[in-house]
């Protein structure tokens, strides 16, 4: 599966990339909202993982923008205490969420679900 990961914390970005690559996915990195949307158009990923709080464009705006004309599943990452934003994201069409601190192996398992759906 081709996965786009949007996260402004470099270490988190690399950690997620490492985990996904180990699972055999192709990973595209984006470090802020604008970059993410550009890469969505350019690479047309099968899944998007995005932090909910990023510079230039919030994760919510990304969800809104992507869901406007695509069906790409989106998983959002949020810090604890952002319940409001999580609910908002779901209202806008997000498919799943993970809160930090998170476990990379849990992320891996959740992603597998989308891989299965993607293959159908």
């Amino acid at each position: 599966m081709r996965v786009l990961v949007a996260e402004d914390d470099e270490l988190m970005l690399r950690t997620i990339e490492f985990r996904l690559k180990k699972d055999g996915h192709e990973v595209i990195l984006a470090r802020d909202g604008r970059d993410a949307l550009q890469k969505v158009d350019e690479y047309e990923p099968d899944l998007i993982i995005s932090d909910v709080m990023m510079p230039y464009l919030s994760g919510l705006e990304i969800v809104a923008a992507v869901k406007e004309n695509r069906k790409t599943p989106i998983v959002i990452l949020s810090g604890m205490g952002h319940e409001d934003m999580v609910l908002e994201a779901f209202r806008l069409g997000a498919d799943d969420y993970l809160t930090k601190p998170f476990s990379p192996s849990e992320l891996s398992v959740r992603i597998k679900r989308f891989a299965v759906i993607n293959q159908r």
Binding site: D9, L11, M12, T15, K100, P101, F102, S103, P104
Partner: peptide
């Protein structure tokens, strides 16, 4: 600074 931020972001065995 980085190790503290990282510790806050990952849980369990990773942490």
């Amino acid at each position: 600074k980085k190790i503290i931020a990282a510790k806050r972001n990952v849980s369990g065995q990773y942490g």
